[in-house]
Design a protein around this nucleic acid. Structure first.
Lengths: 244, 244
DNA sequence: TTAATAGTGTCTCTGAGACACTATGTG
DNA sequence: CACATAGTGTCTCAGAGACACTATTAA
């Protein structure tokens, strides 16, 4: 019998139920920047468990789809979002993280320009993130709702939000990823504000300009800001570096 | 009925089989540096599927254990290793990545000093990694066995190895994580060699020394190298920074 | 004209690379 | 002694911060 026949014969008799299997979901941290603050799209749970608490949009992974496809589906179904930056974050697997049963959750981060967010359906909200630590130290984050009150988060979704911010801060050191949170054309000031919002600290204007322009990833569009009460800034777009 | 009662009543009637569930495994990239090269501990599969190919040590996640506990169990059972650096890497979930059934795999990276590796059991090997790309560009890696011949890898384990190297290279820019691959006391030359091995390029000696000593994470032990044919280097140990 | 921000030119400071020089072990 | 590598002192260069100065728009 050839090795290929071996494989076929084996697979025909294999029992896939021999090991206990957990449920697997994806949860997506959908981040936006506006008004000098980071916001995340959260969904109020109206089903048990954890009814009334706020959760990241998520869903169970279907048998035929990859993890990333599941995350894209969640983005589309729960946020009405397509073609956004999406990156796998971390997989959470504490046995007791969901009281119903064993559920692993693969967390993703998505970045969306504020203007691209469709109107929010009932039970959804853009909640403001408060990050009380600097750099990539990590730690808990607080999420404020409409009235500025802290919102109770479901499951370990607070951890996921915190890790998303941490990851983003790390990436910003070597990637101008902030443009994912801006419209296609933006001023350098806009970009700096986004970076400052993510990092939670002020940046040096001159140095920021120099770094961004030297990166070769920005291209002047020739357009300028409209109707601002001062000298309008030139608008730039992002271009992907040809080779490094 | 109180919210807490609601939760209890709900959980009592919840059907955990309502969604299809994949199997979940952990695979651990156990890395070591020796002879100016990175090595990974691989296991030759003698069961189907993919019999004869080389795989990362791994195992299915049990119902009662967290992902990290599963990875620690794999380290102990398949590598005889305890108290090593361990970090979650990425979760691989292509629906067809295992021909038996849907298996998600949460990959971990472990770093082990070469001297701490116990003798290898039958069917295990320390295989040399060849990384044909520089920086964090990413790309495929080649794994060489005893005779220097490329080994066929099982499933998507080549991707896991490549991502482990990529992650490690990224971390090295801001963490002297290389000490995890060295004995407790080591010379600066040893540390530099490890960093060069991981990065795949030569580093400036003076600058490396300055950076390491300035980081505040190294402490001179007062000991020196023994029986080298030249001036012996001072040995250092790592200390965890108190505050940043 | 004034207010406000965009954008530039330049000085300084710091960290990395380069390199020469000294120190200290073995044979 | 020669030799090899550890470790230091110092020059140069590049990038970041600081800051003053010019440019350009709306009101």
């Amino acid at each position: 019998m050839s090795p290929a026949d071996d494989e076929r014969a084996f697979l025909a008799t294999y029992d896939p139920t021999a090991f206990e299997r957990p449920s697997v979901s994806v949860d997506v941290v959908i981040l936006t920047a506006d008004d000098d603050a980071l916001h995340a799209l959260l969904v109020r749970r109206d089903a048990l468990p954890q009814r009334g608490r706020w959760a990241l949009p998520g869903g169970f992974v279907r048998a035929s789809e990859s993890l990333e496809e599941a995350a894209l589906r969640v983005l589309n179904d729960k946020g009405g979002l397509r073609d956004v930056y999406l990156e796998q974050l971390y997989t959470f697997g504490r046995p007791d993280r969901d009281p119903r049963m064993r559920v692993l959750s693969v967390a993703y981060v998505a970045l969306v320009a504020h203007a691209r967010l469709p109107p929010l359906a009932e039970g959804r909200a853009l909640c403001t993130l408060h990050v009380p630590w600097s750099g990539e130290a990590g730690g808990p984050v607080m999420v404020l709702g409409e009235g500025g009150r802290p919102l109770p988060l479901a499951f370990d979704h607070g951890e996921m939000l915190a890790m998303a911010v941490k990851r983003l801060r790390g990436k910003l050191d070597y990637t101008p990823i902030g443009y994912q949170l801006l419209p296609p054309h933006f001023s350098l000031r806009d970009l700096q504000t986004v970076h400052e919002t993510i990092l939670g600290r002020a940046l040096n204007k001159d140095s920021f300009r120099r770094r961004m322009l030297a990166s070769g990833e920005l291209e002047a569009t020739g357009e300028r800001e409209q109707a601002v009460g001062h000298r309008p800034a030139e608008l730039y777009r992002f271009v992907h570096r040809s080779a490094l």
